[in-house]
Each structure stands twice: as C-alpha cells, then as structure tokens.
C-alpha cells in the first residue's frame, strides 16, 4: 500500500480545522454533513497528508463533497468520478484516493464505470452516498428509490423495485463491500478505516438521509429495523446503537452468506465481504513497466529504418 501519513516530525499535526474550507451549501439535516465529518475525522485520526490526498466526485449533492474538504479535489462531471480516479491511481500511486458518488451518479449515469471500477479493483475508497433519490435536481426517482415512493417524475409512485447496491457490488465481484449510514459516526469511521486499509477498490455503501425531499426515509432515531454484521475481521457495530438492535456474526470471507444478507428484506450494516487477494489493475500496469527492460528514447524510430 502507498499510504501517505502525516510526517509528524516535519509538520504540525493535521487537525479538523485544517480540513475546513467553507460552509457546505447543503440543506439543514442533510446526511452529507455526517459523511464529510467522518471523512475529515478519519483523515485526522490516521494523520493522512492532506496534500497527498485527493477527493474525487461526480455531480449531485454528494458531488460537492470535495469542495468542502481541504485536500486536493476534483469535482468532475455526472457519473464519471471513477474514470478520473482511475487516471490518478494509474498516474500517481503515491496519493490517497477517495471517490464520492451518489446513487444516481454511481448506479444510473455512471453505472458502466462502477462495473469496471469494481472489476479493475484499483486502490481507492469508494463512497456511495445513497439517499435513494435525485435531490439536487429536485426530487426525481433514482435507481434506488423504493417502489411506490412518489417523486416528481413518477408521481403515482416509483414503478420498479430498486437496484440493491450491495448486491450489485457483490455480484460484480467487488473485493470489499461494506454498508453503513450517515448518522452512525462511530460505525462510519470504523468502516472508512477498514476501507482505507483494503488493498483494492473498497465499495462503501452509505444510507444517507435527505430531510428536504424524503424525511420519512431512514428512521435514524430507532435501530430495530436493521441488524449489524460483526466479526473479528469485520467492522464493529456502532457503539451508540449496538445495544438497541440485533447483531449477528458474519465472516466477511463468506460470499454466500454475504449474498444472503444483501438479498434480505431487512437492512444489514457492516462488512459484507472482503477478499484481499483479488488482483489490482493498477498494480498489474505498474508491474508491467517494472518488469519490462527500459529502452532509451533516442532509438525509438530504429525499428522502422530502411536497410
């Protein structure tokens, strides 16, 4: 891994204040506040070097995240943050890479890139901000909107069953699949830590509240409606909520069980699956150069010479 930690001897330790930029332009109560707070907390806790960290995003409420975290950042175009992140992973393996993408960004317009990002398994933390609708464009049905929920584009109620992001990631062969929420800071932080330590594409699904357009979704005050997955190799249940709900043991190397929980009606949060041995596309390309005898450029046209 190419983790870039803060050089404590040479510089002041990184603080939450260092990571502030401006007041985010999100609605009061938006789950995105919780997510970027956790990202910042994680950066501080692990003392990652801010100038060697890049946050990349697409378009939507979640897309604004890089603007509000004082590191390097690319707020790119709708659905394409994975493509930008691929370029950074291939060109600059020394950087810490976080990708921020919404449910519309990742599963609708950018679905193709999610397929291939997961399959290429290049090193990054991928955060799926799932508020289960399009918010920035003002309340349209997204790929994860629950069936029957009324939106501006499907006013009689969303027609189809939603795409299940966790099952999708598992089905695509993701090497790391976790799910958490914006309102469990402890669990979110533990999830980020596990994701960052993962050698590959770490798919982190985050249930995210949208109080403006869908206040009823996600009852963040109670916890009886979901279960924590727990394991010595997994992610510890949220300290605040652990005692109030079901916790079950799940070995994250067990793909069948992971699918079982992903397919269930009930929600599960925790580490569904992890395989640290999956080949990484970025490593393969870098090793290809390392293993190829290097040639001087002065002779590049020799092979086309007329004798």
């Amino acid at each position: 891994m190419n983790t870039q930690l803060q050089d404590k001897s040479a510089e002041q330790p990184l603080t939450m204040k260092d990571l502030q930029t401006e007041n985010p332009r999100w609605c009061l109560g938006c789950g995105d506040f919780g997510i970027i707070a956790a990202v910042k907390r994680f950066l501080v806790d692990t003392q990652l070097i801010a100038y060697k960290t890049v946050n990349v995003s697409g378009i939507g409420c979640s897309g604004r995240a890089p603007n509000y975290i004082n590191t390097y950042g690319v707020h790119s175009i709708h659905g394409r943050p994975i493509t930008i992140a691929t370029g950074l992973a291939l060109a600059r393996p020394d950087l810490n890479l976080f990708v921020h993408s919404g449910d519309g960004d990742a599963l609708s317009i950018g679905g193709n890139h999610l397929i291939h990002g997961i399959n290429k398994n290049f090193k990054c933390v991928f955060l799926l901000y799932d508020n289960e609708l399009y918010a920035l464009t003002k309340n349209q049905t997204s790929p994860t909107t629950r069936k029957g929920h009324k939106t501006m584009t499907q006013p009689v109620g969303t027609y189809l069953d939603p795409i299940n992001p966790v099952r999708t990631a598992l089905g695509l062969g993701a090497s790391f699949v976790a799910s958490t929420t914006d309102w469990m800071p402890d669990h979110l932080a533990s999830t980020l830590k596990a994701a960052f330590e993962h050698p590959g594409f770490a798919f982190v699904h985050i249930s995210q509240r949208c109080p403006h357009f869908d206040a009823e979704n996600f009852d963040h005050k109670t916890s009886s409606w979901f279960t924590f997955l727990k394991h010595a190799n997994g992610i510890a249940p949220d300290k605040r909520l652990a005692e109030k709900t079901e916790i079950i043991e799940h070995d994250p190397s067990n793909i069948e069980a992971a699918f079982k929980y992903a397919n269930a009606e009930r929600r599960y949060y925790g580490l569904f699956f992890q395989d640290k041995s999956k080949a990484r596309y970025d490593d393969i390309l870098h090793n290809l150069i390392k293993d190829t005898p290097q040639k001087p450029r002065s002779k590049i046209l020799d092979q086309y010479m007329l004798e």
Partner: peptide
C-alpha cells in the same frame, strides 16, 4: 489503459493530467 468506454478514456487521461 484500455478504458470501458470513450467517456472513461478521456476521464482517465484528465485524471492523470490533474495528477
């Protein structure tokens, strides 16, 4: 890098140049 589509191809080149 053989990208998954034309959009990804330029996105990755832009990401590298940003780097």
């Amino acid at each position: 890098h053989q990208a998954e589509d034309e959009i990804a191809a330029i996105g990755t080149a832009i990401g590298a140049y940003f780097g």
